[in-house]
């Protein structure tokens, strides 16, 4: 026999609590949406390196979540001096100024050196080979025009919620930029 209270309440106590909590939670979510709405942005952002803050350590090569870092060296040809003795290309004391591996600063030989006209040589980065170790960037910035610099390549970057290189960057050079202008390219030397 099913014994029911004489006057069953239209809403049980538990149901009432549940409905009330749900309403409160919805209000809370709405409030959250309101607060965030004023601050949130429809503009998607992506990570990028500010070349003026980059200290040319080698952490970009090793701390990216990708096996081969999304950070690569970029060459702003407009400010390159096309030097024959490129300090971004050659080791400090090269035995000869040629493309021999022992003379190259780049550990993966990612910089291609080609003769343009006397006495100018063109340097082009092979991004397939570049590992973002910043050795050439250091050489170019220290003694040259600084036309080599590191940038996050967005065809590789997976745009992590928090960039794992940014966490360990000694120069605090990583920041989020608007997706419409995803690169911070150098236009002037240094």
């Amino acid at each position: 026999m099913d014994v029911k209270p004489p006057n069953p309440p239209p809403v049980s106590r538990r149901q009432f609590l549940r409905d009330g909590s749900r309403a409160a939670a919805l209000t809370g979510l709405g409030g959250l949406l309101g607060v965030l709405g004023t601050r949130s942005t429809s503009a998607t952002t992506v990570w990028q390196i500010d070349p003026s803050k980059c200290l040319r350590c080698d952490r970009c090569a090793t701390h990216c979540v990708l096996e081969q870092s999304a950070v690569k060296c970029v060459h702003a040809h407009a400010i390159c001096g096309y030097c024959q003795l490129c300090t971004g290309y050659f080791v400090p004391e090269p035995s000869e100024l040629n493309t021999g591996a022992e003379n190259q600063l780049c550990p993966t030989a990612a910089i291609k050196r080609t003769f343009v006209e006397d006495p100018y040589y063109e340097y082009v980065i092979d991004e397939q080979l570049c590992i973002g170790c910043a050795k050439c960037v250091e050489g170019c910035n220290r003694f040259g025009n600084g036309s080599l610099f590191l940038q996050i390549r967005h065809d590789r970057c997976v745009n992590c919620n928090e960039c794992s290189i940014a966490q360990v960057c000694p120069g605090d050079a990583f920041r989020r930029v608007a997706v419409q202008h995803p690169y911070l390219l150098k236009t002037t030397s240094h």
């Binding site: 407009a78 040259g144 967005h154």
Partner: peptide
């Protein structure tokens, strides 16, 4: 100025363009 001013080429050399591949995320959001 910069340490090594960019040369003025006589051989008709054209400066290579710096490639900027766009992010993949934009259309997906």
């Amino acid at each position: 100025e910069q340490r090594f001013p960019p040369p003025e080429f006589e051989s008709g050399y054209a400066l290579p363009e710096t490639k900027t591949p766009p992010p993949r995320t934009l259309p997906f959001q």
